[in-house]
Amino acid sequence: VLDILDPADRQALPFPEGIAVQWRVNPHPELDSDGLVDAVKAKTWLPGSPAVWVAGESGAVRAIRRYMVGDRAVPRDRLYASGYWQIGMTEDRHQIEKRKDSQ
């Protein structure tokens, strides 16, 4: 699921065969929203042992990480989750807060 601001941001991306992308337009990116989290939770899971990669707004990433570990039992060594920005914070402030969280 890719979260974007404007439908014009949709791009033709070179995904391998069998990969489907769901574009989710977020018309209010400056506000907290569970839209991306809800879209991830609504996905149908395939059988097998997944490897999960998540990056995006910090609040959404935290919620998705909790879901993956708690509800879906994805092993932590098969999960990468990183918040690249946080609503309401400058990049510098976000990096300071992110370093605090990792200590």
Rank of each mutant, 00 (worst) to 15 (best):
F15H: 12
N26T: 06
A60S: 14
V54P: 05
T90D: 13
W85S: 12
P50D: 09
G88P: 09
P16N: 11
P14G: 14
D3E: 15
A55K: 02
R93L: 12
A39K: 00
G48M: 03
P27Y: 00
R10M: 14
S102I: 07
M68F: 08
T44A: 15
I96N: 10
A39V: 02
N26A: 10
P75T: 05
Q95A: 15
W23I: 05
N26L: 05
R72S: 04
D32I: 02
G59L: 03
P75R: 07
S58P: 00
A63E: 10
G88Q: 10
A20T: 09
L79A: 07
P50K: 06
D3F: 06
W45C: 11
A60Q: 11
H94S: 01
S58G: 06
I4P: 04
L79Q: 04
G56D: 08
Q103N: 15
A8C: 01
K41Q: 09
E30G: 14
V40D: 10
G83C: 05
L79E: 08
F15T: 13
A42G: 11
A60W: 00
R72L: 09
V74R: 01
P29D: 00
G35S: 10
W85K: 11
V74A: 06
I96C: 10
D9Q: 15
M89P: 05
A51S: 14
A8K: 03
E91T: 14
V40T: 08
V37S: 00
V25F: 00
W45A: 15
S49D: 14
F15Y: 15
Y67F: 05
G59H: 02
A81G: 04
E30H: 11
G56M: 10
S102Y: 06
D38F: 03
D71T: 12
Y67S: 01
D77N: 15
R72F: 00
D32S: 09
G88W: 09
Q11S: 14
M68L: 14
P7R: 01
D92E: 14
G70A: 02
L5G: 06
Q103F: 13
V74E: 04
Q95C: 10
A12C: 05
V61F: 09
P50A: 07
A60V: 02
V40K: 08
R93F: 08
P47D: 13
M89Y: 08
V25I: 09
M68H: 07
D34A: 15
T44K: 12
F15P: 09
K43M: 13
D77A: 09
R93K: 13
V69C: 00
D77M: 05
A8Q: 01
V74M: 02
D3R: 09
R76I: 01
L36W: 14
L36A: 15
I4S: 04
